[in-house]
């Protein structure tokens, strides 16, 4: 059972103020219930199909400055800082 408190907790985790939490309760519950079938599948392998790459083929450690002043494309103040709300 998914409850209002739980939906609001999920909303808090993903930082979304839910205007109408009730609306989501039923839907999330219904879908999670559908997901529950995964827990009944029997597996004969622990494989999870992750891709692999040889460490040798990773990016070389080389400094290459980005071709443009990226900050000019972002929201910034006159000193080129990004402004965030106060923390407390």
């Amino acid at each position: 059972m998914v409850e209002k408190k739980e939906i609001e907790h999920l909303g808090d985790l993903v930082k979304v103020e839910l205007k109408d939490p009730e609306k989501y309760i039923k839907q999330v519950e219904q879908i999670i219930h559908y997901f529950d079938r995964l827990d009944t599948v029997e597996f004969n392998s622990d494989d999870t199909l992750r891709r692999e790459v040889d460490a040798e083929n990773l990016r070389d450690d080389k400094y290459e400055p980005y071709g443009m002043s990226l900050i000019d494309h972002l929201n910034k103040d006159q000193n080129n800082f990004i402004r965030a709300p106060k923390m407390v």
């Binding site: 990016r59 450690d61 080389k62 400094y63 910034k76 000193n79 080129n80 800082f81």
Partner: peptide, 19 residues
């Protein structure tokens, strides 16, 4: 020389903000 996931400079000290 470079950051963990991109080619920006690993040494960030004494640079203009967000440069």
């Amino acid at each position: 020389e470079s950051k963990l996931f991109c080619s920006c400079k690993a040494e960030y000290r004494n640079l203009e903000p967000n440069s």
